[in-house]
Design a protein around this nucleic acid. Sequence first.
RNA 1: GCUCCCAUCGUCUAGCGGUCUAGGACGUCGCCCUCUCACGGCGAAAACAGGGGUUCGAGUCCCCUUGGGAGCGCCA
Length: 479
Amino acid sequence: MTETVVTRFAPSPTGFLHIGGARTALFNWLLARSLGGKMLLRIEDTDRARSTDAAIDAILDGLKWLGLDWDGDAVFQFARADRHRQVVDQMLASGRAYPCYATQAELEEMRSTAQAEGRPPRYDGRWRDRPESERPTDRSPAIRLKAPTEGETVVDDLVQGRVVIPNKDLDDLVLLRSDGTPTYMLAVVVDDHDMDVTHVVRGVDHLTNAARQTQIYQALGWVVPKMAHIPLIHGPDGAKLSKRHGALGVEAYREMGYLPAALRNYLARLGWSHGDDEIFSSEQAIEWFKIGDVGRSAARFDEAKLQNLNGHYMRATPDHELMAALRQALPYLPGGPAAAERLEATGRWPALESALPGLKERAKTLVELLDGARFLLDERPLAVEPAAQALLTPEARALLATLGSRLAALDPWTAAGAEEIVRSVADESGVKLGAVAQPLRVALTGRKTSPGIFDVLVALGREESIGRIADQTPAPAAG
RNA sequence: GCUCCCAUCGUCUAGCGGUCUAGGACGUCGCCCUCUCACGGCGAAAACAGGGGUUCGAGUCCCCUUGGGAGCGCCA
């Protein structure tokens, strides 16, 4: 019998799609796809105060952008509250759960005295075995799990190995709050069971929860799904990734000009490896992925490596595809919308695409690519960067003047033809190619660096090129 | 405090008792290519946290120490 593998990604919609969450989703996705199974999506929105529609949209949008598709419709946990309560009734009836009337103040006190005595803060089970006759009628109880007090609970984890937690360290967790709403701990178990989830892949921060949830499964007599708790992502300083480390949400990576495929590759390689392979497609990752190959130690997020990887992806992407990716990303990039407008107005979309080969090998992100393409966006007369200004010496301007008139006669307007002219001007003037090429670069782009200057000439076209050169050429005699 | 997890170059990692004078990648530093910057090529520096065992033999297994991390809610 072949059981269909079912994984699930279960974010709580209280913010954007966290980069760590994205990796959890990726591993769930890889596991499901590699085993021919399904990945489900469940929105854990039981915290009504913190859950927002905007966050749900952000998470869905982030997953789609990253190319992580899920099977079926997203399940909303809050909508299943009745089912959760039904399961608790079942547990109450079987004696595996009991009502607890302890007040917040009592719980507070329990915690503080436990702390003071050096014991782990936990519920003392004071309502666990109280007879019904003692139950107060002036308030409604929370329902707690009657957890085993002795022995140990074992989590056979696909990544962490066999993790054993003494039951005495696990208290009777709340299943249903006194207002009748189910807790996360209960909801997760019931939903995973009802959704036929076979593999639970999530962050190690849930490892202790896994033990507690195992107790719930056992109380219910349900099969415990396979678990895989993957290590968390840390910031460059080794501490858990947080706001102060900068970008946290995947949408920020879109804004920084990263390609989804590159981010997927990077994230997959963070904590998982297939020998020495560094650059691989998602298809390869799916083929190679084994959850057991995921390491147990936390990995630091290294943006320099992500950038390098993204650079590889950009260079490897065919121009028309990269062009499409850029057009899609433009609305999200800083200055992107304005750039799109300019390209539209000047009709330079084709020029940009033709300049892509030179542009993409000089950029690690789409943002850098766009910056490199600025010479195509700028209008005459060009603003020359201060650092570049120094190259426009009187001698250089004179060379430019010669160059301008020679170039004007070039036909057809090709890179090879332009190169021939530039080289001969250099030869005739007895200077090195650079002495002509550099001033030409400044005249054409306003900067000291750019793609190959002959390619720039072609991308800009004859009229614009000649014009820009003229802009930097001394006015004839008159002055 | 208690419970659990982790520990190879600065970073991500390969290594699953002998092939390790520890490999790859990013980053760093040289050199080459060159119209600039890149790309690319070549090369260099750079690690088994410490201490005990087990074993003929340990980066690989066990224990301790140290150092990190996570969890301990009527949050998820």
